[in-house]
Structure formats: structure tokens, C-alpha cells
């Protein structure tokens, strides 16, 4: 199942932040959204999981189909939608609790398991999936804030995975990390794409070049060009895209 965006307009007060966005974000692939800062990349992500609702004076028009259902209308169950769409934010933000409770948090609020044993098993599984298990094995009950930044970001990823999402949104998830941690996260995303559809905003073109299957280039609230990564990087159709990319190709 894919995410399909049809004629999406987003206004905050009188300002139009997103202009007539039409996109298909294919499943089980990594889609990178690139573009200069302020072009609406983050707004687009926040619209997909409806976190934009907490912004004031916001108005949405158009359709965003997740699994074929429009999520813009008010009738939709937003908490269920958000469970289905994981988020990894720019700065890692562990919740003020232990490592274990961080990962278990989503399972608990959604009452996913009847038995505690299942919960423990799932937490361990997710920590293993992000390669954190061996590093924190003896201290899962200690505060998550004591982890290094890179570890915290992996913890946040594990936390998102624990609620069994189908999509993962990543908003410049590596920009606050050192090169090594950032490489680890990138590798994780690549290994996860067989199970999840990953949509990530990035401002480093190199990263998009390394891991993207699809690329969306946005500028001033509009999608300038989108398509398979190879095509966009090698034969951009638009002048604007060419100019933007020339930063790395010249």
C-alpha cells in the first residue's frame, strides 16, 4: 500500500505553505525529499501523520490517501493513523523514562500485548533490530537520557518500530548526529526498507544519493520534480533541479 497525495494545499493563516502537491510515495522503498530549507519538506511530513494539527490557524485542502483512505477529513481516527506511521525526528528525544519504557511506551498506550512476556520480547526484538541491544543489555531499566546522541536516535527508531508501523517518516534524522552514528542510521534505513515504506527529508544531497530509491525535489512549497533517484540525479528534467543538484555535480 502506498501513500498518495492529490492536490494538497496547506495554509497557515493566509500563507500558503504547500501548493498543489501531487505525489505517489511507493511502498517498501526509500523516498527522499530534498530541497532548500523553508521549502515545505517538514510541513509535508507533518501533514502525512497529521502532526500539523497542533499548529494553529492551519487549513488543509486536497487528499492524502494512506492505504486508500483519505486522512484529511475529520472523521479519521488520528491516533490509529499515527500508530501506523512512525516518526523519527531531527533531534533525538527520548521520553523521560527508562530505555525499556521508551520502547514499550507505544505498545502500552495502544495496549498491544496482553502479556508482559510478549512486551519484553517485542522490546528486545526492536532493540536488536536497531543494533542497540548489545550496547544496553544490562541497563534497559536506566534512564534513556544517559545514552549518547547516536544511541538515543536509534532508540527513537526502535520506539517507532515497536508499534508495528507500515511507514516511517524521518525528518533530517541524521543532521544532529556525528558521521559514524549517522552512517549507522542510514544503514539501518536501508536494511529496514524491505519491511517498511520510508519517507525521509534530508538536506544533504549525498545522503539522498547514497540511499534513495526515489527523490522528490521541492522548492517554495511546490514539487518541482519527482521520480526514481537515478533519473533525477542523472537526467533532471527541470532547470531548477539541475541548478540545485549542480552543487554536487559540478
Amino acid at each position: 500500500m502506498a501513500i498518495e497525495i492529490q492536490h494538497l494545499n496547506v495554509y497557515i493563516k493566509e500563507n500558503q505553505i504547500l501548493k498543489d502537491i501531487c505525489l505517489t510515495l511507493p511502498e517498501k522503498q526509500i523516498t527522499c525529499i530534498i530541497g532548500p530549507s523553508g521549502c515545505g519538506k517538514s510541513t509535508l511530513l507533518r501533514t502525512i501523520n497529521r502532526l500539523i494539527d497542533s499548529t494553529e490557524h492551519v487549513r488543509l485542502e486536497g487528499k492524502v490517501l494512506v492505504d486508500g483512505k483519505d486522512i484529511i477529513g475529520s472523521g479519521h481516527e488520528i491516533t490509529e493513523l499515527r500508530r501506523k506511521i512512525g516518526l523519527v525526528s531531527q533531534r533525538p528525544c527520548p521520553l523521560p523514562m527508562s530505555i525499556f519504557d521508551n520502547v514499550a511506551y507505544g505498545c502500552r498506550i495502544n495496549r498491544m500485548y496482553k502479556k508482559h512476556r510478549q512486551l519484553i520480547y517485542n522490546v528486545q526484538k526492536q532493540l536488536q533490530a536497531v543494533g542497540l541491544w548489545d550496547e544496553v543489555r544490562g541497563r534497559v531499566r536506566t534512564s534513556a537520557t544517559r545514552l549518547s546522541i547516536g544511541q538515543q536516535q536509534r532508540l527513537c527508531l526502535a520506539r517507532s518500530l515497536a508499534v508495528e508501523p507500515e511507514y516511517i517518516l524521518a525528518d533530517e534524522a541524521t543532521s544532529a548526529l556525528d558521521p559514524i552514528s549517522s552512517k549507522t542510521i542510514e544503514d539501518l534505513f536501508v536494511s529496514l526498507k524491505s519491511q517498511y515504506s520510508i519517507i525521509m527529508v534530508t538536506h544533504t544531497l549525498h545522503q539522498a544519493l547514497r540511499i534513495a530509491d526515489n527523490v522528490v525535489f521541492m522548492y517554495l512549497g511546490e514539487v518541482v520534480e519527482s521520480g526514481p533517484a537515478r533519473q533525477i540525479f542523472e537526467q533532471p528534467q527541470q532547470e531548477l533541479t539541475r541548478k540545485y543538484l549542480s552543487g554536487i555535480f559540478s
Binding site: 497542533s54 512512525g86 528525544c93
Partner: peptide, 26 residues
Amino acid sequence: PMELREASLALGATRWQTTHKVVLRK
């Protein structure tokens, strides 16, 4: 910080769950 609330909301928590499990706890 706002991000902390959003981290909780993004996992499917309601506003109130976020408030009493994250904001009040913090």
C-alpha cells in the same frame, strides 16, 4: 520541549496520554 510531545503523539498517543505520561512525568 514540543518535540517530546510530538514524539509521543506520533506513536499514536492521545493528547491526554501524552500529557500525563510525558509532560506531567517530566
